[in-house]
């Protein structure tokens, strides 16, 4: 198992009117191994969606690249020109499914027209029939109905549309799929079907690795191998799924985990953490730890200096006073 994707100290910002900078991604490092699903979770506005779009290497205004590296299979994505990126990397090596992709389908085109367009852009020699045939085969392999290709987007249910999007964006067997909130706005059964499909793509080795961005932690519990918790433009804790979900050490991760509400035994007796305040304004320079203002354990040190990301037992934490395992027990479920 090798490293597929490495991101080092990536910084990107939105250029706002009046020249202000909104530092949405403010120094993020991550690695993605072959065969791995990395979950990225955080509240709305934490920068997780921005991070996802950065990873495609295309920085659409007002989003601007500031510094850092993204290396995909030895290729420096940021220094690759956009033409090459579009033609031979996006869709082939790395595929990005943006948040509202399913609503972005052109309503006047049948799905098959869309397939032909996209495939031919990457492989100009491919005939329309060939492209559609490939899509048909892929749908068959994944035991999905072929007739979706003949349908217009509005004829498909939300869940079916999202599954179609997932299939179409993996037609060229990309090594990495980056999915931004692929299940939000779907009802629970469609949600499950989309996740099932994504897992199948991994099992069948159609794609090697996945980055799954969501605010729904219970889903990550079932799909992610590792989870990164993002807050105000940075990762606060990165660890394996069990480490993050069942044994969080960063106070923020802890708060996040104990505010999960799921229908299971003991839930009704559980106390939810009452935390107030808002994440810091990313337009301003932040002094100290980004969570300090809302953190019950914050000390003067936290407010003065930003802690570094430190690694212990295979987990990385950006905190001066990480919790110890014991404190977790008192609020654990069951």
């Amino acid at each position: 198992m090798g490293k597929l994707l490495t991101v080092k100290a990536l910084k990107a910002y939105y250029k706002l009117r009046l020249g202000e900078k909104l530092r949405a991604v403010d120094g993020v490092s991550l690695t993605l191994q072959e065969g791995e699903v990395l979950g990225i979770a955080g509240e709305s506005g934490c920068g997780k969606s921005t991070l996802a779009s950065c990873l495609s290497g295309l920085f659409f205004p007002p989003l601007k690249y500031q510094k850092g590296n993204i290396t995909l299979d030895g290729i420096d994505i940021i220094r690759t020109d956009k033409q090459t990126l579009r033609k031979s990397i996006l869709g082939k090596k790395i595929s990005f499914i943006p948040q509202s992709a399913m609503n972005a389908l052109n309503p006047t085109l049948k799905i098959e027209d869309f397939v032909a367009d996209v495939m031919q852009e990457h492989e100009p020699d491919l005939s329309r029939e060939e492209a559609i045939k490939r899509a048909e085969e892929r749908l068959e392999v994944l035991s999905l109905p072929k007739d979706v290709l003949k349908a217009y987007p509005f004829e498909l249910s939300g869940g079916m549309k999202q599954r179609t999007i997932v299939v179409l964006s993996t037609l060229m067997n990309p090594e990495i799929v980056i999915a931004d909130e692929p299940t939000s706005a779907l009802d629970v059964s469609s949600q499950r079907q989309v996740i099932e499909l994504m897992k199948r793509l991994l099992q069948m080795k159609i794609t090697k690795s996945m980055i799954f961005i969501t605010h729904e932690l219970p889903i990550l519990r079932h799909v992610a191998d590792r989870i990164a918790i993002m807050y105000a433009g940075v990762f606060l804790e990165v660890g394996t799924m069990p480490q993050i979900i069942f044994d969080p050490r960063h106070p923020y991760t802890k708060v996040l985990m104990s505010s999960i509400i799921v229908p299971e035994k003991g839930m009704r007796e559980r106390k939810l953490p009452l935390i107030t305040g808002r994440p810091p304004d990313l337009r301003k320079r932040i002094k100290g730890c980004r969570f300090a203002k809302r953190c019950p354990y914050a000390t003067d040190e936290c407010r003065m200096r930003e802690p570094d990301m430190e690694e212990t037992d295979g987990r990385k934490i950006k905190c001066f006073h990480p919790l110890k395992g014991k404190e977790i027990k008192q609020n654990e479920v069951i």
């Binding site: 059964s189 996740i195 099932e196 219970p218 889903i219 069942f246 799921v262 299971e264």
Partner: peptide, 19 residues
Amino acid sequence: GLIEDVPTLHKEWILTKRS
């Protein structure tokens, strides 16, 4: 069915159910 579709923390999520 509805309850089975919801992912929880401590129960395995049955992903391969046909519907």
